[in-house]
Design a binder for these strands. Structure first.
Length: 278
DNA sequence: CATTTCACCTGGTGGC
DNA sequence: TGCCACCAGGTGAAAT
């Protein structure tokens, strides 16, 4: 489900519902592979904390936690970091709402709400970080909405792998996944098989701007709901109706009518227009 | 080191 | 209806 626009939408919708709430009680399921540190320790850290804010970093949802909401130098003392994997959902529900299959976490909050983490495939990850003597969470890759032309070009210099594979590498750019790699390469007119280090300055700048435009447009439409992605309120996004190539194999290109092709790059389905993308 | 492949999971779809 | 192959928004370990 979740690439940058979907994670941004989830973080914003969770923030709007839970900011300022205190976590009263935490329940975790028994699938321990979801937990980057022990669930008992995470629960101990979460219980009693106040959610100061919720935001996105790369593909991670970051909860900023504090001991209380009111004191103005509200410096966070801990973070709870949620990665949604392929099928993860963060939902805000009434405590008596039916608990669906594959619910792995329930956080009881003040104000009569519950935050739930649901993830059928269990590729998601939950991590608690105490910040009293430590480092806050920063993903290794650059933010594609903020990076300037020179550092963007430098990411790909000398690399022999396909540009599509490079875009999926989270330690280069954080937040781009399969949908938005394909859509951005289409808008930039670049074939996904091109070697990253072989792109011209002009092509790299087209790609940087295409990423910015596509991701920004997708955020405004609440992300792409291909199968089961929804925000904290259970609402789907609508950017999927704007897709030009992703999962449009065999359908006519919206720009030139040529049939969209699907190939494999780095083991991922890759969609492109053989005429518009050189 | 850079790059590729594969395993990790459940569930939906389409062919037979 | 059932069975099977294949596909899916991601990542990190192992292999090359």
């Amino acid at each position: 489900m979740p690439e940058l626009p979907e994670v941004e939408t989830v973080a914003r919708s969770v923030d709007a519902r839970v900011r300022g709430s205190r976590i009263l009680q935490v329940w975790f399921g028994s699938h321990h592979e979801l937990f980057k540190n022990p669930p008992s320790r995470q629960a101990t850290g979460l219980e009693g904390s106040v959610i100061l804010a919720v935001h996105r970093s790369g593909k991670h949802v970051v909860f900023e936690l504090g001991p209380s909401a009111t004191p103005s130098p509200a410096t966070p003392h801990a973070q709870w970091i949620v990665h949604l994997g392929m099928t993860g959902q963060l939902l805000v529900k009434a405590p008596d709402a039916p608990v669906v299959r594959h619910t792995h976490a329930r956080l009881t909050l003040t104000g009569g709400f519950e935050l739930r983490f649901v993830d059928p495939r269990r590729f998601g990850r939950l991590e608690f970080r105490n910040l009293t003597r430590a480092q806050c969470f920063v993903p290794p890759g650059a933010e594609p909405l903020e990076i300037a032309p020179q550092p963007f070009a430098a990411l790909f210099r000398g690399r022999r792998l396909a540009i599509k594979a490079a875009l999926l590498n989270q330690s280069l750019l954080a937040g781009v996944g399969n949908i938005y790699a394909d859509e951005s390469l289409f808008r930039a007119g670049i074939r996904p098989t091109r070697r990253a280090g072989r792109l011209t300055h002009a092509e790299l700048e087209r790609l940087r701007l295409a990423l910015r435009d596509v991701l920004g447009h997708a955020i405004r439409l609440g992300g792409s709901s291909v199968s089961d992605y929804v925000d904290a309120n259970g609402d789907p996004g609508s950017f999927q109706v704007e897709h030009c190539v992703y999962q449009r194999t065999g359908q006519p290109c919206r720009r030139c009518g040529t049939l969209i092709r699907r190939i494999l790059i780095a083991g991922r389905g890759t969609h492109f227009c053989p005429r518009c993308q050189r």
